[in-house]
């Protein structure tokens, strides 16, 4: 496979060094296989190199890279290769949650629409700001803010419900006595 690219913008290698771990973490959470993560990371930077001028136009280079990474990840899934095909699984899903509050939180978040879960992931796992999330997902900042607030409201209500249930439980009563 060969292709032509525009000359590289200054500092792309520095950007690679600065964002490599964050982007690798992003791909690991979605693909969970070492060789796939590395390929996707390099594919992300290759795409960046095709249009380095766009990097200069981006308000946040980091958010712009996450935006590319998101497309690269989606395309990798479309190629229908099963994740961790070589058996080198990096992470496994946690077993049953011992803390009922965390279990309730997990259920609540799992039931959210994809966009909302993606916003939570970019914020809490990858530490992107509202503005960076908006740029990554191509949505207005107001949308990011309102979806996040809405998710937190739902979660808070669910946690309050959980706390109410545990306060009324025999276990809680025996502990309080």
């Amino acid at each position: 496979m060969t292709m032509e690219l525009a000359p590289p913008a200054d500092g792309i290698e520095r950007l690679y060094r600065e964002t490599r771990e964050a982007l690798a973490g992003y791909f690991r959470r979605r693909h969970r296989a070492i060789h796939v993560v590395e390929d996707l990371l390099h594919e992300t930077f290759l795409r960046l190199m095709r249009r380095p001028d766009r990097l200069g136009e981006a308000r946040s280079p980091r958010a712009y890279l996450f935006g590319i990474a998101r497309h690269v990840s989606a395309e990798a899934w479309r190629s229908a290769e099963p994740p961790a095909a070589d058996g080198r699984v990096l992470e496994t899903l946690a077993a049953a949650e011992p803390d009922p509050r965390l279990a309730a939180a997990r259920e609540t978040i799992a039931a959210l629409p994809d966009l909302q879960r993606e916003i939570l992931d970019l914020r809490f796992q990858h530490d992107l700001s509202y503005a960076e999330i908006a740029e990554t997902l191509g949505v207005p900042v107001g949308t990011v803010r309102s979806r996040l607030h809405n998710a937190m409201r739902l979660l808070r209500a669910r946690l309050a419900q959980e706390d109410g249930a545990s306060e009324g439980s025999p276990d809680h009563e025996s502990r309080s006595a």
């Binding site: 690991r28 959470r29 979605r30 969970r32 998101r70 990840s73 989606a74 899934w77 479309r78 229908a80 992470e91 899903l93 946690a94 509050r101 965390l102 939180a105 997990r106 978040i109 799992a110 994809d114 966009l115 879960r117 993606e118 939570l120 992931d121 809490f124 796992q125 998710a151 937190m152 979660l155 808070r156 946690l159 309050a160």
Partner: peptide, 27 residues
Amino acid sequence: GAMAAAVGVARATVRNHPGLAPIPRPG
């Protein structure tokens, strides 16, 4: 205080459960 606690729980939950990150839809 309750809302701040909910944010903390959300952070811990998202970090501990990579499976909650949405998988891009297949083709």
